[in-house]
């Protein structure tokens, strides 16, 4: 579901560009400029490969961690129908994580390495999943806002210059629409319900609005890797452009629900055709990204426990496969 402008977290790493000549780099950029897709084994600059590995694996980690806030409500969904829907959505998030890990692996990084970086806390994932899901309405708000923001981010990624990533994103985007629609419908049901239900929906919007806007990453001026990613056509629109687009489509949806967006200063500028909004609290964003959000520790601890608890299953499956292979070889 969710990529984010996390690229400012990137580190340069060891310089392995010994063999990159200006000719190679120019030829590569020419392919990109001609809208040719780059495929797994094609020559590419080391920095392009590293940027993609970082972005795709962060994206995959976000999908995997993203199962937790929603999984929190699986056993407490109010009806059988809602439970089945939520289960399908959480399964989709797992699937999206797997599509993305598999795309990142084409760049020569192993699944174990990526998982290891997530579990050690070295790799980042989207800040949005470090917020708790306190009420059932949060499940609606996540589908509507978080998946909505994710769609804004992900649609342009379907045209990303790296083939395996763009193909994975096409698959993800097809499934994402269900996520957003079920979330909005959940909100709609609450808003047409009792006073308390509507208040619960409003409260969820209040808590998720700003974190959802932060999903697009820092302001363009503060986003250090953006220009290079745009030149490589990994990224097609700037963080601020996508954020504005999201606000413009989402505010009317909130109005339809009869809810108010928690921004006193929000107004529609008829000259530009866009909503103007208050400044985002970037300190909160950087706190959450750097590990101090409400749920960072809990999310990683749970992921580590799941990994550890599953160790015997992985070992047993491998032992069984080895035994079967040995028996077949002997036969």
């Amino acid at each position: 579901m969710y990529t984010q402008g996390l690229d400012q977290a990137g580190k340069s790493g060891p310089d392995t560009r010994e063999a990159e000549t200006a000719t190679q780099l120019d030829a590569f950029q020419a392919r990109i400029d001609a809208e040719e897709k780059i495929e797994a084994k094609d020559w590419m600059p080391e920095a392009y490969r590293r940027t993609l590995i970082r972005q795709i694996s962060q994206h995959a980690h976000s999908e995997i961690i993203g199962m937790q806030p929603e999984g929190n409500w699986l056993t407490r969904a109010p009806t059988m129908k809602r439970k089945a829907i939520l289960l399908a959505k959480v399964q989709d998030e797992a699937g999206h994580g797997l599509y993305l890990y598999s795309a990142a692996e084409t760049l020569g990084v192993s699944r174990d390495e990526m998982v290891g970086e997530l579990l050690s806390g070295k790799a980042k994932y989207s800040s949005i999943f470090n917020y708790p899901t306190l009420t059932w309405a949060d499940i609606g708000a996540i589908g509507w806002l978080v998946d909505g923001a994710a769609i804004m981010n992900q649609i342009p990624l379907c045209r990303c210059s790296y083939g395996p990533y763009s193909r994975a994103m096409v698959r993800v985007c097809k499934e994402e629409s269900f996520h957003q629609r079920q979330g909005y419908e959940l909100m709609l049901t609450l808003c047409r319900g009792t006073e308390e239900q509507k208040a619960m929906a409003q409260d969820a919007l209040n808590r998720f609005w700003w974190p959802a806007l932060m999903m697009f990453g820092p302001n363009d001026a503060a986003s250090s890797h953006s220009a290079q990613s745009m030149a490589w056509k990994i990224k097609r629109f700037s963080n601020d452009e996508l954020r504005q687009k999201f606000i413009d489509v989402t505010v009317p949806q909130a109005e339809f629900l009869g809810l108010s967006v928690p921004d006193e200063a929000l107004w529609f500028n008829e000259d530009t055709g866009h909503y103007e909004h208050s400044d985002i609290d970037w300190q909160e964003f950087f706190d959450v990204i750097s590990g101090n959000g409400p749920c960072n520790r809990q999310r990683l601890a749970k992921r580590r426990k799941a990994q550890d608890d599953g160790a015997w299953v992985r070992e047993a499956a491998r032992a069984y496969a080895d035994k079967k292979a040995a028996a077949e070889a002997a036969a």
């Binding site: 989709d92 699937g95 069984y320």
Partner: peptide, 23 residues
Amino acid sequence: AGSVHAADDEMALNNARDTYTRR
């Protein structure tokens, strides 16, 4: 469609079904 990890062929088929054909 993509790739999956699996301990053996049979698990690969099941994982591929769960990952790539949920709809």
